[in-house]
Design a protein around this nucleic acid. Structure first.
Ligand SMILES: [Zn+2]
Ligand SMILES: [Zn+2]
Ligand SMILES: [Zn+2]
Ligand SMILES: [Zn+2]
Lengths: 164, 164
DNA sequence: CCCTTGACTGTTATGTTATTACGTTAGATA
DNA sequence: TATCTAACGTAATAACATAACAGTCAAGGG
């Protein structure tokens, strides 16, 4: 009932196979445009993240990769995941020690993440205004900000009110 | 040269023994006011965090506690640290897997953290505006936000321009 | 006064997440 | 073809975190 992979309500951007295809093709277009090598392991890792909906731990990804004949050791997963994050195909969710596919790999963007503490769904949202406010705060503190992690915990639309 | 414990420039709020004392007495006042038991291990842990300036990992704290005759095993440090975080005496810095003393334990507050990637200093800043923007974004997404993690990486005032 | 209760501290053992180091492979370059 | 380099693979280990359980002690009711 509160499993986001079944409800389809976890987030508007990851709501079905149609969307998965869209994300993947945006990602491939981005890779081509930027001359980035989306190799088999990297591509497969990205597909796994997209299919997972919520965030996956590195060892979850590794397990799937290993089952498909890729390497069996942690660096295999961490290298692919870190590469995807560095190049804008995925995001790292620090509160969960996990990774999630970027919902909008077409363009560079500042994102915030909403993490449901009931169903563990993770929703990516544009965070232009939040980042602007944070940039102001940084300047006031004399800090040269480069990038930020913005994660919120609470209840997603599906779980709020439903569970209790 | 870029060691924040020596420069005194890492952040305006943690800039010396005077400030350490202020933070500690604010914390003790808070504990008294809220009837919270700031026991010896907890107090000592807080003092260690305050003295450290930047963020400390749980095992760094544990090492110091153990050297002073407290328990030697991870749960000793994690319990004290988690208690301090839960009750507003410290914050967890997820990007660093570390903990830092709250600079303003007198009042409840939304905070953002600026992490210097040169000297590893961590500065706590008020984040009312940032949190407001994030709350707006959450509402737009139909998400019932409870709390947030806001961490930025970049260069602190002391390191920016200095190093390179 | 004695017993129960619950918060706190401690230990052992284990689980989870992440990196270092190094050898091999395969495509690009000259 | 010889060389170079990014990518991939493995083994080993480091770093971070929790589960489960035992002993201590102060507060409160019989
Ligand atoms: Zn994204
Ligand atoms: Zn939910
Ligand atoms: Zn604080
Ligand atoms: Zn610095």
């Amino acid at each position: 009932m509160s499993d986001p992979t079944e409800s389809g309500f976890c987030c508007p951007d990851h709501s079905g196979p149609q969307s998965a295809t869209r994300i993947l093709s945006q990602a491939q277009a981005r890779a081509a445009r930027m001359r980035l090598r989306l190799t088999p392991v990297r591509l497969r890792t990205l597909e796994i993240l997209i299919a997972a909906h919520g965030a996956l731990g590195a060892y979850d990804v590794l397990e799937k990769l290993a089952a498909e004949g890729y390497g069996t050791q942690p660096p295999v997963a961490y290298r692919a995941l870190n590469w995807l994050v560095e190049h804008g195909f995925a995001h790292r969710i620090r509160r969960l020690n996990a990774f999630t596919a970027c919902a909008h790999p077409a363009d560079d963007h500042a994102a915030a993440f909403f993490i449901c503490d009931r169903c563990d769904s993770v929703t990516e949202a544009p965070a232009v205004a939040v980042t602007a406010a944070l940039t102001d705060a940084a300047q006031a503190a004399g800090f040269a900000m480069e990038r930020a992690t913005i994660e919120a915990v609470g209840q997603c639309r599906a779980c709020d009110g439903a569970g209790a």
